[in-house]
């Protein structure tokens, strides 16, 4: 994969910020207010996180962060940590 360009003067959103925003996406999509997310977390850890919710999560994340994932990227995500890293890498890159 090509290295992603980083624009000058537009530093990528800090991981904590991503974390916070991601948490509210999870809470909204899964409709549960007491969700905490960790880097190691996977769909296996949350009952409601099935394929239907997964689609909604992905598209809600894309909307919230103004980014777009490729199929290969979605396929390679193994846990929430991968998702955070991918969001971070894509920040500042036009969707």
């Amino acid at each position: 994969m090509k290295p992603l360009p980083v624009r000058e003067g537009e530093p990528s959103m800090k991981k904590e910020e991503i974390n916070g925003k991601l948490k509210s996406v999870f809470q909204k999509v899964l409709d549960e207010n007491d969700i905490t997310i960790t880097r190691e977390m996977t769909a296996e850890d949350i009952e409601k996180w099935d394929s239907l919710h997964h689609i909604q999560l992905i598209s809600e994340v894309e909307r919230a962060f103004g980014i777009k994932f490729k199929l290969r990227e979605v396929l390679s995500m193994k846990n929430v940590g991968d998702l955070i890293d991918l969001i971070d890498a894509k920040q500042g890159v036009p969707a």
Binding site: A43, E44, W49, D50, S51, H54, L71, V74, L75
Partner: peptide
């Protein structure tokens, strides 16, 4: 797995 549709695509 839960995300069977992704496994299918792969």
């Amino acid at each position: 797995e839960r995300m069977a549709y992704l496994e299918v695509a792969d």
